[in-house]
Amino acid sequence: MAWILLIGFLIFLWFVSLCKFLLVSRKTSSNHFMKNGRTHQKRNVLLVVAHPDDESMFFTPAINFLTSSGHNLHIFCLSIGNADGKGNIRKRELFQACAALKIPWQQVKTVDHPDLQDGFGKVWDHNLVAKLIEEEISSLSIDMIITFDNYGVSGHCNHRDVHYGVRKLLHDTSQRDIEAWELVSTNILRKYSGPVDVWLSMCFSILHKNGTMQCFVNKHPRRSFLAMAQHSSQWVWFRKLFVALSSYTYMNTLRKIK
């Protein structure tokens, strides 16, 4: 009897959270995110990821906010995901996914460097990562970077190396004045709570009234599925389950990198 009540409560909580999510998604999220004296000015934003499909699995709420707000979003992917020898296929899939996310193909770039190959245990040189990102910033007049935090959502070493490369760039170069934000990694319960995490994410955002943490509710959650489905070589059952259950499909929390 207790198990039935618990399951019933969880289903009820999921349903209420989904309704809350749909209500919140109709409102403007993160009103202060693009301010700092540039409220009416388009910003050039660089989303730095490690592999094709990172953008669709983890960053779609932020992507949808930026594109719908009219900002110039560029995707910079530091590998072609060639761990299984499917690099060229995955590169093509990235462009298809970005089209589903309303990002022009001209604003998507991949890197296939011999020292930045996809794979667990393949540590990337943070200096090289920082150098490549700096070149991209200079060529595109970027004024904001978004990337992973130091855990990288899944703990993948390549995700973490991208984070540390961005940090090195900010610390060691003339690009210190670039605004940079990291996607906050959550514990496993929150990660797989789907829209239920909207409650905690919004609370944490409210507590940081100084603007160092921002929440993005995904106004087009169906677009997450459409984009991830373009990565057909990766679109296996457990990734379909991940996209359905992941809180990152419904909500992104970004924290300012100091």
Results as ranks from 00 to 15, higher is better:
Met202His: 07
Ser69Glu: 10
Thr253Leu: 01
Gly70Gln: 09
His159Pro: 05
Ser247Ala: 13
Gly85Ala: 02
Pro61Ile: 00
Leu241Arg: 11
Phe120His: 10
Leu200Pro: 00
Tyr192Trp: 08
Arg160Tyr: 06
Val184Ile: 15
Leu5Pro: 03
His208Gln: 11
His40Trp: 12
Ile89Tyr: 06
Asn218Gln: 11
Val184Met: 12
His113Arg: 08
Val166Asp: 05
Leu189Val: 14
Val198Thr: 00
Gln117Ala: 14
Gly194Ile: 04
Gln117Pro: 14
Ile188Phe: 07
Val162Cys: 13
Leu200His: 02
Cys157Leu: 09
Tyr164Met: 10
Arg43Ile: 05
Gln106His: 14
Cys77Gln: 07
Thr67Tyr: 05
Ser138Gly: 15
Arg239His: 14
Leu18Pro: 05
Gly37Ser: 07
Pro104Trp: 09
Gly165Tyr: 03
Lys102Gln: 13
Ile4Leu: 13
His220Ile: 12
Ser141Met: 12
Ala83Gly: 10
Ser193Glu: 05
Gly194Asp: 04
Gly194Leu: 03
Lys122Asn: 10
Asn218Leu: 08
Lys240Pro: 05
Gly119Thr: 14
Leu189Thr: 09
Val162Asn: 06
Ser17Pro: 03
Ser141Phe: 12
Phe120Lys: 14
Tyr164Phe: 15
Ile7Phe: 12
His113Ser: 10
Phe59Asn: 00
His208Asn: 12
Gly87Asn: 09
Gly121Pro: 04
Glu179Arg: 01
Ser224Glu: 03
Ser185Asn: 03
Met144Gly: 00
His231Ser: 10
Phe204Cys: 01
Ala83Leu: 08
Gly211Lys: 07
Asn158Met: 01
Glu55Ile: 02
Lys219Val: 05
Leu5Phe: 10
Val166Cys: 13
Ser69Ile: 06
Val16Met: 04
Leu23Asp: 07
Thr173Met: 12
Gly37Leu: 07
Ser174Tyr: 15
Trp237Lys: 11
Ile146Tyr: 04
Leu254Asp: 06
Ser232Phe: 10
Ser174Phe: 14
Lys168Met: 07
Cys215Asp: 00
Ser17Gly: 02
Asp161Arg: 05
Ile4Cys: 14
Leu116Ala: 01
Ala227Lys: 10
Ser193Asn: 08
Val243Lys: 07
Lys35Ser: 04
Val236Met: 15
Gln234Tyr: 11
Met228Asn: 12
Val16Ile: 13
Phe65Arg: 02
Phe12Val: 13
Lys209Asp: 03
Glu134Leu: 11
Val198His: 00
Ser205Gln: 03
